[in-house]
Each structure stands twice: as structure tokens, then as C-alpha cells.
Design a protein around this nucleic acid. Sequence first.
RNA 1: GGUCCUAUAGCUCAGUUGGCUAGAGCGCGUCGCUUACAACGACGAGGUCGCAGGUUCGAGCCCUGCUGGGACCACCA
Length: 850
Amino acid sequence: MADMTDLHVPEKPSLDGLEDKWIAVWDEQGTYRFDRSKSREEIYSIDTPPITASGSLHVGHVFSYTHTDLVARYQRMRGREVFYPMGWDDNGLPSERRVQNYYGVRCDPSLHYDPNFRPPAGGEGKATRPQDQIPISRQNFVELCDQLTAEDEKAYADVWRRLALSVDWSDPYRTIDRRSTAISQKAFLRNLARGEAYQAEAPSLWDTTFRTAVAQAELEDRERPGAYHRIAFHKADGPVYIETTRPELLPACVALVAHPDDERYQPLFGTTVRTPLFAAEVPVVAHHLAEPDKGSGIAMICTFGDLTDVTWWRELQLPTRAIVGMDGRLLPDPPAGVDAAAYARIAGKTVHSAREEVVAMLRESGEMEGDPKPITHPVKFYEKGDKPLEIVTTRQWYIRNGGRDTTIRDALVGRGREIDFHPAHMRVRYEHWVEGLTGDWLISRQRFFGVPFPVWYALDDEGNPDHDKPITPDESALPVDPSSDAPPGYDESQRGKPGGFIGDPDVMDTWATSSLSPQIAGGWTFDDDLFGRVFPMDLRPQGQDIIRTWLFSTVVRSHFEFGTVPWNNAGISGWILDPDRKKMSKSKGAVVTPISLFEEFGSDAVRYWSASARLGTDAAFDTGQMKIGRRLAIKLLNASKFALGLGVTQPDLSAVTHPLDRALLVRLADVVETATLAFDRYDHTRALEATETFFWTFCDDYVELVKERAYGERGEAQQASAKATLAIALHVQLRLFAPFLPFVTEEVWSWWQEGSVHRAEWPTLADVAVDEGEARLLGLVGDALSQVRKAKSEAKVSMRTDVASVVISADNDAVALLQSAGDDLRSAGRIADLQFATAGDGELAVRVTL
RNA sequence: GGUCCUAUAGCUCAGUUGGCUAGAGCGCGUCGCUUACAACGACGAGGUCGCAGGUUCGAGCCCUGCUGGGACCACCA
């Protein structure tokens, strides 16, 4: 047992400096270091979201990462060894764009590596138009990405430490590092070997700015102005009118389509018509997707205007007349069957200019009826792009995801049901997404900064690649870069030569790598001992917006590779909304940096605000809540200082004899139980609320009531009971608060305890077990005290004014209870004469005479 | 067109399987420098629980419909 000399209570406790102090101590003592000798059952593993470190953190990140840390700290105190890694998602388009804008450069894959290249000084105001940017080789560009993201990651890590995320910082991973690249390539090769990954040449959605294919999950609709153009097609006995928003695709028209039951067009089915301007003969076909009440009820099918065109083209086995190139301009040469002179007027133009020209041509020829009718309609965009997507036929890599296969789809829906979502209704989003998939997962991107596909293609004698038999490396050779490494059985001199080889030029989409975050963090195939101890993981924390991408794709990879779910729980955080109820990251609030909040309110206070919001619920950005958190932290310092200053030593249940003390511990037992159950259900707000409510009662009522007794004014045994109870209550409350307020609880803990509170045992009923006790007593005495205070308040006198007499009337049981704590009530209220009376109705009534 | 969430005090939110006069904090008002805390404390005012029906002895909670707010999916001729 410690004595007074072991106490280190400061004269004037303060929050100032606590953060730097404890961050350093935790670092030095390895407080959050993961002990990998523990078994799977003893470990709690977390699939931390690898954050995109290109740009700056905002309060939404602080909010959701705090939620994860609450769980980590709770589980650690419960005795689980917590595997809580940190990762950076630094591969992919956001990093490329950051480098382009920061240095004013762009990647030109045709250039050779310049080992002496030095980038211009980074900063704002660099050229953003491609023609103004400095062209550099792919390798130089990747190096810049690598360097800049590493710098950004340092800044992020500082924020995370200041927020007190209890991650093990010894081995953060990066999705672009060699090991992540190797794991990503290995997982892909295994998908390929099992037939889960495949290559196909097919029409796919294409972003003409970034010049890459994009996946279904990355699409978003935006309302754009457009116009219906009513255009005449020709048949022997007169015109057939169609309406289109994309007249420039007329040369790409391969058929007209109407609903099979549409009486108006029955006679046309099986005949052909001639396209205006471009004079191609196209068939009129029937398909159930054609909608009779849309436009004129008959539509032109182009290759390709939209996804419905692709469906029609595929199901009706129509020919292809592609006219839009990868750069978003019309191809130089007309497709077969199209009038070359007419096409020459639009060849090479952008889609936009071509549309204007075709409209002008239609006006000249009189084949457009009336003026275009302006409308607003949804258009598909890449979520990071700013030009409408086109559909271009390209060779791409896919991973099966149930989009074209009900067996896989059902299996993946089933996997979703094995995961406990918090809150539970988030599973619906998963299921709807899986059930609504229309195609497999397109994972290839025609970009530079990403994981390259680890495949090469043999060239035949004429130099044509054989895409059907990709050459793959041995797993032991990974990672490979097929643009600089030669495939097995070849040497570099054969690159690009007939009879030689070429490397696959594409990189994987960032989700194809981040979908392996459990494998990367756990060291799959690099450290199988570790992997076996942490996988499948316990928790995937993430935002609701990426259920369809990150969550789903991780399930897909785990399902194929291991036949399991990747984790048993998914904790979904909500959004931060600004005062106008708009998503914070999209508004002015985004300029409030986390560091400035830490400086103004303290990290504990910011954590308190985050912890006040439940999983899955959007929360208002509310500095008021941070002020409350700050006040709570200060109160914890002061109350602890006072209790310890009374000569409180160490918890000792056997000394607790007084009825009021027993009542407090019975109440505290309830709090411990509530908080524990709540945390087990991933309901941190309830745990916090129960703890906080108790704490204020403890401060405002209990401490006031036992002050004199604790000073020793009613004998040693009574004093010992009060001091023991204060010690127990403090000891338990500090631990209950520790996940929420790690700095201040650690500070107070250090005043009188050994080791870190964050490695202390989570409190249990054994900490507060008293033989008998009436929790009700605490409330009764508190009410009585409150009535006495009210009388003083109404008389406008100080709370330390003496009271002549107080008469409390209540039922027999209540009176008996109150009498057992009468001395404490008398001293706290400064009551000279305290009397009790029995009242039949059971109402507590307090008559105060000043 | 479909789906999910949501509506409780001026504000931010609790309110467990339906159960006495609906709670907290902030803000507001009044009072008090009391040796843990004035960066504080005490006390108080403030709500026909979005609207309309229904089930029930009893509904903030369950059911139906409507309205408002938020989000997602589908629709692109």
C-alpha cells in the first residue's frame, strides 16, 4: 500500500502540456506496442482504414478515427492484446494529382528516366493545365509521388499522435510500398490462376480527362443541361423520327429500337432505315428495354452512347461503329458504312464541338425537326472527374464479384450476413449494392502511380501481343514492374521486338490493393505466424460512403482467398455536418484544422465530442460539445486532486462501512456494468454517458457530503470508510474514462498509481463489491441536500450560510435510510438541527428554516 | 421509381423489451468568490415528443398513412 510520500499531486493541476508529456512517455514506454506472442483468442485485431494522405486531415477523420480508438482502448483494458496498425493509402489518383499540382509536372510515359531530375520547389500556384506542366518520365513521376506522400504522411501521423490514437507506430504500412505491392500482385495472380480474375475486351466507361477506365463503384450521376433533338431517319415511304440528346453519335448508330409490343413500330421491325447525314443502312429491332412513352418511343442504338446501348448491342448482336477515341475526340476515320465526306466535317473534334457541327449539318439538310428542346438530365461521371464519361471499347482486367454470376453473388450476400454491422441497418447498404451489381469489378486503370499488373505478353513474329496467354512471374519474384523487369525466359533486349515480349502497361485501381488491407497489415505470406494471429480480424472501422467499395471489395478478396469473412464486426461512422446540416468536408467547415481544435480545446475535449456521437449517426460540428469535454477534463483534475489531497491512499473495500459509501459503490457497480455492456455492443456513447452522469453526482453530491467525515471529524472508522470509498471511486472512474480522455486520466493515474492507466484492467464488479448497500440512499440524500440549497438560493444567501433547522418528511423506509446518513447531510448543509418526520404519502418533503 | 436513416426544450442530443408528473448538457434567468474547481458552483424557467389515424388498461416508443430533413440506388433514347 502506498503512503503519502507516493503521491505526486500538483498544487495547481492543469491541462497545459499534458499532451506532449504523455505522447512522449507512451512512445518511450511502448504503451501501445503489440505483443505478437499472444494467441488469436487473446488478440483483438483492427483493420484500420489506410488513409489517403494527399491533402490534409479534416475533422471528419478525427471523428471516425476516435471511434476506433475508443474500441481499441477498451479492448486493451479488457485484457485483449490489441493489434491496431496504421496504414497509408498512398497509391492511386489522389497522389498523382497532388504531385501534379504541387510541383506543376505531368507524367509522360514516353520519356526516359532522368536520374538528375530535380523538381521545382513545391507549393501553391503551380501550372494546372497539362500544356503548362513539365513533362517527366513515369519513374521520375512515381518517385515524386513517393516522396511527397511520405512527407504528407508525417504530418498526418503528428495529428494522430496528438489525438492519442493508441496505434502501434512501429511498422506503418503504405499501399505503395514494396510489400503491399507484392501482396497485391500475389493476390491478383492467385485470382487469375483460379479464374476469378480475367481479361476482356469490352465497352467500358471511360474518363477522357484521366484517360482511364473506371469501375461501377466509382460512378456518380450529376444533373447536366442537355437537349432533345428530333431527327428524321429515312425509309422508302417517309421519315421515322427519333429523339436524342447526343446527335453527334449519329455516325455511330447501328440500329433503331422500339418495344416489341409497340403498335406504331410493328411494321418496321425487320426492315432497315437510312441514317441522316451519314447514309448508313441500319435495321429496326425490337427489345423490351425500349420505352414506348419516352421521346418518340423509338431510339437509336449507338456504339456507344450509354450502358443501355451496350446491353442492346450485346443482346441483339449488333455491329460496332466506334467513333469516340480515348482522348474524347472523334476518331479520324469513319466507321464502315458511314459517308466519308460527311464524317470528315467532325473527325478529330471533341464530342462537344462535334455535337454543334452535327446540329449545324442537320439544320442545313433539314433533317432535324424544330429546335432542340432543352432539358436537364443525369449524366454519369467518374466521381473524381469533371467531364462526362464516354464508353470506349478497351481491353481491361476484371475480378468476379457476382455482377454476372448469381452463385457468387449469393455467396457474397451470405458473407455479409456473417458480419455484425454497427449499426445493424448498415448491412442493408451492402446487400443492396451486391444485389444491384450489373457487371464484374473492373480493376485496371490506364494510370502510372499504382501497383502494376504482374503480367507480360509474348509478341508473335509480326510483333502482335498474345493477350490470351499472359506470362506471369513466380510469386517469389514479386514485386515486379513489367515495364522495367523482363519476364521469365526473356531478357530485356527482347522488349517490344517480334518474337519478344511487352509488359502490361496498366496499374491496378487503388481499391484492388486497399481491398487487401487485412492481408497487408497482417503480413500475409510474409509473416504467416503474425497473420494467423490476427486474421480474420475483429473489427473493420470505416465510413458509410465506402461500403460499396472498400468494405465490399475486401469481402470479395477474402472470400476468394480464404473462404471466410475478413472480420467479424464492421463499425460504421457517420458524417460530420456543419451548422447548415451539410456534409462538413464539402463546406467551409473543412478549413477548421484538427490541430487548431486541439490547441483551442485540448485533444481530450475533441475526443469527447467525437465520442458523444453514436456509430452510424451523423453529428454536428459542435465546439460547444468540445468546451464541455474540456470542462470535464479539468473537473477530473480538480476532483482527483481534492480526493487525493484528503490523504486518500489505495482502494480497500474492507474499510467501507458507512451506508452512504456503500450506496455510492452500489451505484458505481451499476455504472461499471452498463459501460461494459455498452462497449461490448459498440455503443461507446452510452458508456460515456453513464460514466459522466455518475461522475457529476459523485462531485456535486457525494464529495460534498463526505468532506467533513473525510477530514476525520467523526472518528477514524468513519474517516477510513470515506477515504477508502473516495479511492475506490476514483480508481474505477479513471479507468472508465480512460478510453475517452486518455491524457487527463493518465495524468491523474500517475499521481498515485504505478504504470499506465491504459494498460490497467477494465473495472469489474469485483472492484466495487460491497456486502449490502442501498443505491437509493444516494438519491435521497442528494434530493434533500438539493432542497436545502434551493432554500439558500431563494433566500439569496451563500451556500455556506448556516441553517437553523431542517425537517424532512418521507415514508418509513426513506426516513430510516436518510437517518443513516444524517451526519453527512447535516455537515454538508450546515444544518444545526436536523429532524425527520414520517409522511404517509411517501413524498420527500423538506422544510428549511434559515 | 425503389431503399435506408431521421423528426423529443431556443441549440446538440438521451429516452433500453410500451409502464408513475418526458431527461441531460449548452444557452437563458437568479444567486453565490465556499481553501478541489470563478476556465467554478448552486438554484430555476423552458417541451400538446412532426401531423393524422390505429392497436392497447396504458404509446415518445408498436402498426398504417401523410409531411419535413439527410443519404444511397435506379432512371440517361
